[in-house]
Design a protein around this nucleic acid. Structure first.
Lengths: 333, 333
DNA sequence: TCACGAAATGTTAGCGCTAACATTACTTCG
DNA sequence: CGAAGTAATGTTAGCGCTAACATTTCGTGA
């Protein structure tokens, strides 16, 4: 910076002022400084800036592993939005889904001196980690946590999972189904709980039976297992439709039904959640609930950087139903 | 740090020595300092450290969007490895696949003062960006660039795409196929080129015909389009097997064949590349080539941090064939 | 034309750490 | 038991920037 100042014939402070868009700089001076910067290919040292201003222009993202489509998309949206605002993004992925792991990851980000953290890890244990950490920086959590204690300093941004489940269940009910099984997501995940509640609410409203098959994980093998377990019920007509907690599970379910010769949607309807890249190309193409992950990412960053301190109510984003070929009226209607 | 020093009854420099594992500290003193650190909940300021040492303990990762399974997995593996080594990871995603966009992203990382960069963006234009940038920090590129000029200071780490394509093609040939079409990936991507070359080599060796159907993108809709275009050839027996450049394309192809009533693998075999989460649950389950992305990520980080300056040869990792139900001997054998 | 206030620029100090050098405390051996 | 050498600790300076205050320059009205 001293070099630039020398070339431009001003003091280093004037250079700093130009770089920080200070108002009180004559435009001629500004031009000279800019020219000197260009000529020297000068770049500000970020460490020195961070030291002097005591903020790092970096936000931390804590996320979960690669197997999850939603978090991944959200993270990328946050990154894009952050970069557009001149922020840097430091990402840390969780290898295990427990509080200890989350605490460690959080500390890692705090050690780095991030100005804020977005947590894209919608399982319940992260909340414990958050409570333990007692951070002094703003935190946004992307998770459908519907009952947040007033003492919780974090802000929440999420897609209305319960509403999505209602949309899915409502779609099946409207088609004439009543025996709608729910292959629910693993315990300990906000999304799993919320989707289960939305489905159950809708079923109780319709006075329809509650048939739940819990899945071990969010992934296709668990869906396949659940599908296997459902085959008999489908054959005897005890289940005419399945609401899978996500599209991976739905893919496994489709596969399990296919293996035993059950036709979807003739014999049984299947609906998923998420709308993956390939959901439209499955056999049959999968009816599902789409989540606007980009919007979530954007909203999360906005909330982090510009969040109104007074308004700590969660930002809730609406999902949409995507109708395709895996749902149809039940056979023996 | 001064506070810690005061509490421990030593100078701040001794605290620094303890923190940096300097050998010449009496163990009693070390314990006192550690105790003071614990009591005060002290954490070193990273900006100050970066300023004093002029390195940031941060590595930058430049990657591409969410739609790609491989890069995503690789990035997460790099992150995990980096964190284990005490490094921070700053991620920047490319929104477009051109040199300008890549240059911008690279500058963004350099502005942040990263100590090194890993580029997980295997399209050819990134090389231009790299050449333009003329970075002073080490760079590792995760891309199957087989002919690297000696002047290129970057190191390369990649899965042997050509070998993977040979494995896939060889598998089909071994089953008795000769009319093997290749749905190739979009132009401008190293992986697409290499896979095409591997397939072509093997086909020429076998004196089999070269039938190539280029795909517009790496995604399922393009695969679907390509599949449609192949239907007639399959029906008249001009094509008995299809090697898709990746599993998304294969998914689209399976779907296109299914729609017109062509059975896989009875009427036509299909093989993919990547081994997605759901590839084993497609209908039929997809024979494919698996890439060890975690190994790639790990190798990339190792190369970046410990890379032997003398040995700049690329680190090449072998893919494996995963046999499933989408391939079988041709019908009229 | 000069005093005055505002705009523009300069000067100084310090953010929290590490590196280099200076000093003190402890060994060890003749 | 003391000199020499080494281990342990302390002191000083500076990394590159910004904030706060000091100074200079400029424009304006009586």
């Amino acid at each position: 910076m001293a070099d630039v100042a020398a070339v431009a014939g001003v003091s280093h402070q004037t250079v700093s002022r130009v770089l920080n868009n200070h108002p009180n700089v004559r435009s001629g001076t500004r031009d000279q400084v800019m020219e000197a910067i260009r000529k020297l290919g000068y770049r500000r040292n970020r460490a020195a800036r961070a030291l002097a201003t005591s903020h790092s222009s970096t936000i931390g993202i804590l996320t979960i592993g690669s197997e999850f489509f939603g978090p991944q998309s959200t993270v990328l949206a946050i990154e894009a939005a952050a970069r557009a605002q001149g922020y840097f993004v430091s990402v840390t992925a969780l290898d295990r889904y427990d509080a200890h792991s989350a605490t460690e990851a959080l500390n890692h980000l705090v050690d780095q001196g991030v100005d804020g953290v977005v947590m894209v890890a919608p399982f319940e244990k992260v909340i414990d980690a958050l409570d333990d950490a007692a951070l002094k920086i703003p935190v946004v959590v992307v998770a459908a946590r519907t009952s947040v204690p007033a003492s919780d300093p974090a802000r929440y941004v999420y897609v209305d999972q319960r509403e999505g489940a209602r949309l899915a269940t409502g779609h099946l009910l409207a088609l004439g189904h009543r025996k709608i099984a729910h292959v629910s997501g693993p315990t300990g995940w906000f999304d799993a709980t919320e989707r289960q509640i939305g489905w159950q609410e809708k079923m109780l409203e319709a006075k329809a039976p509650i048939i739940e098959v819990p899945a071990e994980s969010w992934l296709a093998p668990s869906g396949y297992e659940a599908g296997k377990r459902l085959v008999d019920s489908v054959r005897v007509g005890e289940v005419t439709a399945v609401f899978a907690a996500n599209d991976y599970l739905a893919t496994g379910i489709l596969r399990a039904f296919w293996e035993v010769g059950l036709d979807v949607p003739t014999d049984v309807s299947v609906i998923g959640f998420d709308d993956l890249q390939i959901s439209n190309f499955l056999i049959p193409s999968l009816t599902t609930v789409r989540q606007p992950f980009r919007d979530v990412g954007h909203a999360a960053l906005t909330e982090l950087l510009e969040g109104d301190t007074a308004d700590k109510s969660p930002k809730v984003i609406a999902p949409t139903l995507v109708m395709r070929a895996s749902t149809a009226p039940p056979k023996s209607q």
